[in-house]
Design a protein around this nucleic acid. Structure first.
Lengths: 225, 225
DNA sequence: ATTGCAACTTGAACGTGTTCACTTTTACTG
DNA sequence: CAGTAAAAGTGAACACGTTCAAGTTGCAAT
């Protein structure tokens, strides 16, 4: 049972535990970091860690919230200034990998847990719903704040698709060993441009039938999860 | 260190361990099955299990090989008879989920391990290369054996894309709680039809530019992994 | 038959994440 | 201030996956 602290002392402990975990994850990697080491560095007992975080995996969930906040801060100016959809998308997704760069070394170990349908961290699950909705809402903002004219049915489903797209990019980024993670940045530039191009074609007569089918499919799949 | 058996006795032990693991995974699920329980049911010691399988996860890799064999047997007649690409695709992918149906209950627990970039089971990794190549080769056969006329550049990249598509379907299938897994079958029918339709459109002038870009992107991504 | 050696087998021991019955501290009430 | 209940904290104990040094088996060569 993971509890929110109700006293100043509790808040301090919880923060110390998370900070110790984050530091150790970066120093040694996720698996080499033991709960005992985290507790020791945080200056609390092993049992106390479990008072605030239900499991080692839940520390990772907190890590996601943390990077999401960093991401939001990083893209604030861009979203306020830029109106072109392709540029907004490119900037936001680029900011994701830039924000996560300091954690690249242990991100791989974490992704497995996240993709695990059984894990409490799995993006389609209950524990991560709040954060998921926040991220999807962010992409709704990316679309709505642009000057692109898109059909309503697309506007409805696009944020969820962009959320999935972001996860795909992160998965690629994890494997990316190129210097400065340049390959990932290239892929981001190409895919965002391509997506916006295809969105522009969505009203072509030959494609309208497919578009309806695709959107109906997307709705059906999104609802299932 | 996981070793292949060199004597009849060794083969018997290895088979017994795998069969015990498979049975227990089905009865209790992946995580509730302990290596001790597997060893006990197989009639060997705990240490012997590790003589043939480097880890609990490697038992899952063997499980993949097993289901792949079942899948190959199941689709043999279809591939020999049917020439229509959409029908071949639909049949092959449907056969995947039908073959895996008996293992649905514990498939979820396994997928996390598979998606984990750090795990030896991760599909892009070394240990699973042989099996991955086999599956991609299967989809090459699905495409080549059809009467569809596709541009060479597409024929080259399509098998890998279909392999990825199959994994996507399996991920959806894991979450599917509908009776008889009907939703998954529906999604398969819709997506295969859609894909073949889009492949037919790939030569349209408006799309040719995008197609080149998409294929170049696919090549770049596939090579990265 | 004896030897030698590789294949095979064993289970105690290690470090891990997690649990839980218990103690200590904190904050509030009368 | 005393009392008390909630919050915070503790560490021994548990079951697990994994390792390893030592043991046993079977067979080919001498």
């Amino acid at each position: 049972m993971s509890l929110l602290p109700k006293t100043a002392r509790g808040e301090h402990s919880r923060a110390a535990i998370f900070e110790a975990a984050l530091a150790l994850f970066q120093e040694r990697g996720y698996e080499a970091t033991t709960m005992r080491a985290i507790a020791e560095r945080a200056g609390v007992s092993l049992g106390s860690s479990y008072h605030y975080f239900a499991s080692k995996e839940h520390l990772v969930l907190e890590f996601y919230r943390h990077t999401h906040q960093l991401h939001l801060v990083a893209i604030g100016p861009l979203l306020a200034r830029e109106r072109d959809l392709a540029a907004r998308l490119r900037g936001v997704i680029r900011a994701v990998v830039v924000t996560c760069e300091p954690f690249h070394a242990f991100a791989g170990a974490i992704f497995g847990t996240v993709a695990n349908p059984v894990s409490p961290l799995n993006p389609f699950g209950k524990d991560s719903k709040a954060l998921r909705d926040e991220v999807i809402e962010l992409y709704a903002e990316v679309v709505k704040g642009s000057d692109a004219r898109l059909p309503d049915d697309i506007v409805t489903e696009l944020p969820t698709l962009l959320w999935l797209y972001q996860m795909g990019i992160l998965y690629f980024w994890i494997f990316d060993k190129s210097p400065g993670r340049l390959r990932t940045l290239e892929v981001i530039d190409q895919t965002t441009e391509l997506m916006v191009r295809l969105l522009g074609l969505a009203n072509l007569p030959v494609l309208r039938g497919s578009r309806k089918k695709i959107l109906s499919l997307v709705r059906s799949v999104a609802q299932g999860a």
